[in-house]
């Protein structure tokens, strides 16, 4: 999806529906593996006008991504996929820790990581399913931060959010390549549904 924000009529309801849809797609992929279905909660958070709620949503999203990659590392025997998942999971954990730290500075308790029992159920993924799951989650993550750009008040958070979005965009490009797709199919990476 192109980030065609210069279109004369930008409809907030449509944007909200798109955000929920893209994150729900990620949630559906996660749910198929037994992952906790927290991404719709993140979608609701990103549409709020509260930096605190958006930060909370970001921590939840990044926890989800870290847990997903942990499951992929445990499930796969493919060295390249394992290497990507290990690195990307570490990045997601860094993002979660950074946003949790900002919440704590604001004297707000960050959300806890998902329970390990749910993650263990995801260990039977095939490599192909694992890559598709990761593409869906990375697309949802890019979309989350793209939508957050509209609603974050704090300029420092805008910058951190963009740096995090860019990192998820890099993950997405490499995962598309691993799935034999065009790594960078658009000049305006706004995430959302995985494209072929």
């Amino acid at each position: 999806m192109n980030a065609d924000d210069s279109a004369p009529r930008s409809d907030r309801k449509t944007r909200r529906e798109l955000a929920v849809r893209s994150l729900t797609l990620g949630a559906a992929a996660a749910g198929a593996t037994g992952m906790p279905l927290i991404l719709p909660l993140a979608a609701a958070a990103v549409e709020s006008k509260s930096d605190t709620r958006i930060l909370t949503g970001a921590v939840m999203l990044e926890h989800q991504a870290a847990a997903t990659y942990d499951a992929i590392v445990k499930a796969t025997r493919d060295a390249r996929l394992s290497g990507l998942a290990h690195a990307f999971g570490a990045h997601a954990q860094e993002h979660a820790d950074a946003f949790a730290s900002i919440l704590l500075q604001r004297e707000i308790a960050p959300p806890p990581p998902p329970r390990s029992a749910a993650i263990k159920r995801a260990n039977r993924l095939s490599d192909g399913a694992a890559i598709e799951l990761a593409i869906s989650l990375e697309g949802a993550a890019v979309r989350f931060y793209y939508d957050a750009m509209r609603n974050i008040e704090d300029g420092g958070l805008v910058k951190i959010g963009a740096a995090t979005m860019a990192n998820h965009g890099q993950h997405l490009a490499l995962l598309r390549g691993a799935a034999n797709r065009e790594p960078v199919p658009t000049a305006f990476e706004a995430g959302g549904r995985a494209r072929s």
Binding site: D5, A162, L172, V184, A190
Partner: peptide, 28 residues
């Protein structure tokens, strides 16, 4: 990244972030 917080609308920020993300993909 320097420009993003200075832009006056969320729409401009979102477009700039989508381009920055594409540049990051190029970098990779």
């Amino acid at each position: 990244l320097d420009a993003l917080p200075k832009l006056s609308t969320g729409s401009l920020r979102a477009t700039a972030a989508a381009i920055a993300t594409n540049e990051a993909q190029h970098l990779s």
